[in-house]
Nucleic acid binder design. Structure first.
Lengths: 331, 331
DNA sequence: ACATGCTATGGAAGCGCTTCCAATGGCCGG
DNA sequence: CCGGCCATTGGAAGCGCTTCCATAGCATGT
């Protein structure tokens, strides 16, 4: 009994035919109470679990394609927003979205392998993550189309933003508005986006500008990083943050310490997640809905037409100036 | 040729055997270029799409259960947060989560029917929605377990909050802190939660207290409602809002009009979604993660053990006093 | 020229389930 | 007491695909 029990096992155990088992399992039309009870007992005894694939095959159900999205840190607002757009777009194309929240690299690989091995999806959206050639070939071999979101994967339909340019924009923005000593709150090194943003910051502020790396992506991390940064460098008059939550955390610390924003210290975030306009945070807007919608459109298209040629798309990042920065210095 | 073409059709069209077709389709080990080309041409010509169920059955893949969640207005933060917890919990149990964003009642029914007919899932989570007896029986007949989230469904494992009590708490909170004339920003009538909250508000403030109903659940709706409410009733000194976004919108309008908060007008929201602490909004905290986690645990349990008896759970609502209300009046 | 070892290929056997169809047995009316 | 009908049941035929196995076609080695 290597695999799971089948209805044959149940039938044998219950002393009835497979047809009867099936009837009991499917809403029991025309089955005696006696038979029903025996079957249910057998099901319980053997821990039987119907095989979905067989059911659908036999029942001849529809064949609705499934799109799986590998999303890191689903709890981050950026991804929640991306996921929304993805869900909408996929549903609009008449397909289902399976959201997989991957915690780390290892987790990602595990899920990836499973999805592919099990043929659990007809299309795959990879969010913010690379994929070795070997694994790409695995997908191609299996005929599973895939697209990259927030990551530029050569030869694969991808949508991305220029994080480096965005961070340059952010740092330059503060400089333009009179800041002279910039500090950088960086994100986890494992996330490529932060890597690129750090590079952008460096390009403008110099690689020796003060910085602290937050271990995760929460507001708490931002608070801790800001505390550390300001303790070490009280002279800072501009804080460039790798995401909005860090910036909000920093704002709280600054307020707590009585440093006025934007007069004494200017702050800029990255993402422009919801409510940032209410809070008045100057930030670099990411096209979250745009990325999600694009990816949904791309992958659903590829599922229907595997040969489609879909050019990658770079989405523009936009600086949104608000209350945590001063007015642009005239002239 | 009623249904979709099968590999037999492809094989015939291409003049090869089905085994060859299968090989081409699965990453083409040991197939001549000639055969491959012919098969691919046939696939394209016939618009062939492999049947997933058959594939998985034949390949003998794993049989990972799928949990579908019918979530209304996925774009609302409440649901985004619930969905996160759901995704985590379901993944932790080794199952997949299919998120379905239902726009309205009709949409809900359509998806529901499809999911059940197609046996697209082994378990169903219904968020904030009822389900007629008839449909419940359909699920039971099919042997598909289901749980209700944010809705108390008799005889079904449910988790919910007492929205009425929550709104009473909110209104009473303002009264306790010195407000005398309360206004109510209500949500769409189709959402049961708003219905209950309105009843709670009425119980404390009276059914004739001023109110405006917002057509949707965005901050913009809150702004519009607040504008209308304040125009009609400039004397209001307390605004009870059916959700946090309305409250934030109201705050913006109040600020714009120079009404101080909480001195002239006190404001309270509902949900305590992320960042409300930063904004300083007094609100009624909903256990979003708790609801999602509970539902995930319940449904995954039921999928594994259909006979499990899972008692419903009411989650407590908690008042979180912050800066948009005054200090509690002493004594 | 013949045995040998490949590669490419087709046929057929299931994967586990649903469901049609025929068969069984008990009960009714005549 | 018997034919006929209905409720219940089991067997068997696929659902469309993957894959094992046997076959055939060729190019080698001797």
């Amino acid at each position: 009994m290597a695999g799971n029990p089948t209805i044959y096992d149940i039938a044998r155990q219950a002393g009835v035919g497979i047809a009867t088992v099936s009837r009991v399992l499917n809403g029991g039309a025309r089955v005696s109470e006696d038979a029903r009870a025996k079957v249910q007992a057998a099901v319980a005894a053997l821990g039987y679990r119907p095989n979905r694939a067989a059911r659908r095959l036999a029942a001849g159900g529809l064949n609705r394609p499934r799109i799986a999205a590998l999303v890191p840190l689903f709890s981050a607002d950026f991804y929640a927003n991306v996921a929304r757009a993805l869900a909408r777009g996929v549903a609009a194309a008449g397909m289902d979205l399976v959201l997989v929240d991957v915690a780390d690299r290892e987790d990602k690989l595990r899920h990836f392998t499973r999805l592919v091995e099990e043929r659990a999806c007809e299309g795959l959206v990879l969010c913010s993550m690379g994929l070795g050639e070997e694994r790409q070939d695995l997908l191609r071999g299996r005929g599973v189309p895939f697209v990259a979101l927030d990551y530029r994967l050569p030869g694969v339909p991808s949508c991305w933003v220029d994080n480096r340019a965005g961070a340059k924009m952010a740092a330059q923005c503060l400089l333009d508005r009179g800041a002279r000593r910039l500090g950088w709150i960086d994100g986890p090194a494992t996330v490529h986006a932060f890597h690129d943003r750090a590079a952008g910051f460096d390009a403008v502020a110099g690689a020796d500008a003060p910085r602290v790396r937050a271990p995760a992506v929460t507001r708490d991390d931002g608070r801790a990083a800001a505390t550390q940064l300001l303790d070490l460098h009280p002279e800072l008059d501009g804080l460039v943050c790798a995401n909005d939550l860090y910036a909000v955390g920093a704002l709280e610390i600054l307020r707590m310490r009585g440093r006025t924003v934007p007069d004494q210290v200017q702050v800029i975030g990255f993402d422009d997640q919801p409510l940032m306009d209410h809070i008045g945070l100057t930030t670099v807007r990411q096209p979250m809905a745009g990325l999600g919608s694009w990816a949904a459109a791309a992958i659903t298209r590829l599922v229907v037409d595997p040969g489609a040629d879909i050019p990658g798309k770079r989405f523009a990042l936009e600086l949104v100036a608000r209350a945590t920065t001063r007015d642009q210095t005239a002239g």
